[in-house]
């Protein structure tokens, strides 16, 4: 079976010369949920922007379900397969109503009429927001907007869902609701986060990116319990949180 995502030797320097990635290797199998951890400035966002070809690799390659990213021919298909949920839902939700926003991706891919309508409804139902379809996004709470942002991407039936800081700015109840939704989805997930308990709760596997390379890749509970590794890469657990005492759900 081909992996959902395969990154090989990916290196990238910004046009101003600042090099963000120095040979990243990462493979994610279909259906896996993986957390991408790392301190600020580690290159996490840069890596994410490579996954759907917004940034073009300086060296190395990215493939999504066997399809090479960066090949101009496949750009539309790659962007459909890789669903990125950005951190600020106000950036992600740019249409006048929730329904139109969720419809944007599928409509850009050519879906119309009843088919489009069904696709939108299904995506909104998956995040429990179907009754808000005709609302303008700015009338929703932050947590609701984040869920709609996830729906906008789900509507495109992505191969892999990439979430940038999904739990940021959420109150504990919304954070838990989002976790329930993410767990219920049958899709490969790559979650960029600083929220380590959230990573432990949702992702059996974690990858630590630091200084533009992958420095650790393994079971989340083991990584978070490795004090030396954590200290070396500016990763800190919240006060009183002990990953060893948590029973991880399968």
């Amino acid at each position: 079976m081909t992996a959902s995502l395969e990154v090989k030797g990916l290196a990238y320097a910004y046009p101003d010369g600042h090099q963000a990635l120095f040979g990243v290797d990462l493979a994610i199998a279909r259906g896996e949920r993986v957390a991408l951890l790392g301190p600020n400035g580690a290159g996490k966002t840069t890596l994410v922007l490579h996954l759907n070809g917004i940034l073009e690799a300086g060296a190395g390659s990215v493939t999504v379900a066997g399809l090479p990213v960066g090949d101009r021919k496949h750009v539309a298909e790659v962007r459909r397969r890789v669903g990125i949920v950005f951190q600020d839902p106000d950036d992600q939700l740019f249409m006048p109503t929730v329904r139109e926003d969720v419809a944007f991706g599928p409509a850009a891919a050519g879906l119309r009429g009843a088919e489009l309508e069904a696709c939108v409804r299904k995506a909104l139902e998956r995040v429990g927001m179907a009754e808000f379809a005709d609302r303008p996004p700015h009338h929703l709470s932050f947590g609701q907007r984040r869920r709609v942002a996830v729906a906008t991407v789900l509507a495109m039936e992505p191969e892999i869902l990439v979430l940038d800081e999904p739990s940021s700015n959420l109150d504990p109840a919304s954070r838990r609701e989002l976790a329930d939704i993410l767990r219920s989805l049958d899709v490969t997930v790559l979650m960029v986060t600083h929220d380590l308990p959230y990573a432990l709760e949702l992702c059996p596997r974690s990858v630590v990116l630091s200084g533009g390379t992958v420095v650790a890749d393994g079971r989340t509970q083991e990584l978070l319990s490795d004090d030396a590794l954590m200290r070396a890469h500016r990763l800190e657990l919240p006060y009183g949180f002990d990953p060893r005492s948590v029973t991880v759900r399968g």
Partner: peptide
């Protein structure tokens, strides 16, 4: 913000024209 919104649009298949939804 405009740049970030554009990024989000491109990520969902925007290629210069808005798709016809309604």
């Amino acid at each position: 913000r405009g740049e970030r919104v554009h990024l989000a649009m491109v990520s969902r298949g925007y290629a210069g024209s808005m798709p016809v939804i309604d």
